[in-house]
């Protein structure tokens, strides 16, 4: 059984996208924990570690991804976790590249088919277990 957390940091309150992904992953047979909106990096990292999820998905539309995502990665590392983290949202190409350099496994723009995300999440988990 794959456990995923979908988290929504930052100040924007639009969680339609996050919920669509959460539901799609559930329909793909995964257990999906949703954190709700406006979460701090501390809340997200601690929740993901406490729930011992296999994968963490972060949805960001606010534009603050270059601040929030590295912070979450840093906190996870500090807590001794190396869980795969993916990001969804409106992320410029060069930022996406940078995020992947610092350890994000994938960045999804709007309109990515949810079936593709589900399939890749399975792969992330397989890899991290290998």
């Amino acid at each position: 059984m794959i456990k995923v957390m979908i988290a929504k940091p930052g100040l924007d309150g639009h969680d339609r996208g996050a919920k669509v992904v959460a539901k799609a992953l559930r329909d793909a047979g995964m257990e999906v924990i949703y954190t709700g909106i406006r979460q701090t990096p501390e809340q997200i990292a601690q929740s993901a570690v406490d729930e011992d999820v296999d994968v963490l998905g972060i949805s960001i539309l606010s534009g603050a991804h270059m601040k929030l995502v590295p912070k979450i990665l840093e906190l996870l590392k500090k807590m001794g976790s190396n869980m795969p983290v993916f990001v969804g949202g409106i992320i410029p190409k060069e930022d996406a590249k940078r995020l992947k350099e610092i350890g994000v496994v994938e960045v999804y723009g709007p309109g990515t088919p949810t079936s593709e995300i589900a399939e890749q999440v399975r792969k992330f988990v397989e890899h991290s277990n290998a």
Binding site: E31, V32, I33, Y34, E42
Partner: peptide, 22 residues
């Protein structure tokens, strides 16, 4: 609850308790 068909589940109770997460 888990879905009896796919086995998947959406666990949303935490949303209401996140002020205590840390």
């Amino acid at each position: 609850p888990s879905s009896p068909f796919t086995g998947g589940a959406l666990l949303g109770d935490r949303v209401r308790m996140q002020s205590h997460a840390t």
